[in-house]
Amino acid sequence: MRYIKGEAFKYLCMAATVIALMLLALLMWDAWDKGAGWLSLKFLNSFPSRFPEQAGIKSALWGSIWLMILTAIISIPLGVGAAIYLEEYARRTWLTRIIEINISNLAGVPSIVYGILGLALFVRGLMLGRSLLAGALTMALLILPIIIISSQEAIRAVPKSIREASYALGSTKWQTVRHHVLPAALPGILTGNILSLSRAMGEAAPLIMIGALTFIAFTPAGPFDPFTALPIQIFNWASRPKAEFQFLAAAGILVLLALLLAMNAAAIIIRNKYQRYIKW
């Protein structure tokens, strides 16, 4: 009896795991089933349209790429800088403690709240309008906590002995960080940053808040241009009842997932490559 109970429990737990995995497979299959037929070079290279057969994701794709690059430029220096400060410079004071609690709290704030901030601060306050820059600033704030936390972990993983070796030679703090800590932590930092950016890549809510438009028949030429992005285009298509638009949404999802997969793969490759190289 006891044996049966134990076995039943084991298979119950196993079943839960299998269900979770099957849901993932189902989700992928559903998008592939409906969207694969609509994937084509023309789809990648056409602007959105009222006519599903002519519609494509050119503006959304370029918008997303622009957005990622700008977001990276803004958030990576800020995030890595903050992580360096917290790990290497900050003394354990109340201020440091507040900053750290604050960061972990910010990581739990819903993305749409960042959208509200972006709307009030960047779109209206700084009068950036519904531009790429406003979107990138909003996204940068959104992923900053995750960038900081993952960079901190990477920096913390650098052994203390390397810092001691450097200081003992008469290096200054910044020389130690710049020449030894950062190079050693770089693979970890890069991995974390890429994963954070991939989170931004999939976010739609904050961009809707700041008013990233959906019907845009041009690719942005600069950071002050209006834009749309892949998740927004997908949202727009998915919210239309007509079946063809649903298929377009699925095709858009496939492109988005492919991009995310590529980013994740890059992160994993970087991690594995350097993990092998550096051993303490």
Binding site: L24, A31, K34, A249, I253, L260
Partner: peptide, 18 residues
């Protein structure tokens, strides 16, 4: 499972209605 966690929420929305 981490991939499952990394899928954009708009994709889940699509999965719900489709």
């Amino acid at each position: 499972l981490e991939i499952l966690a990394g899928i954009p929420t708009v994709v889940y929305g699509y999965f719900a209605i489709s």
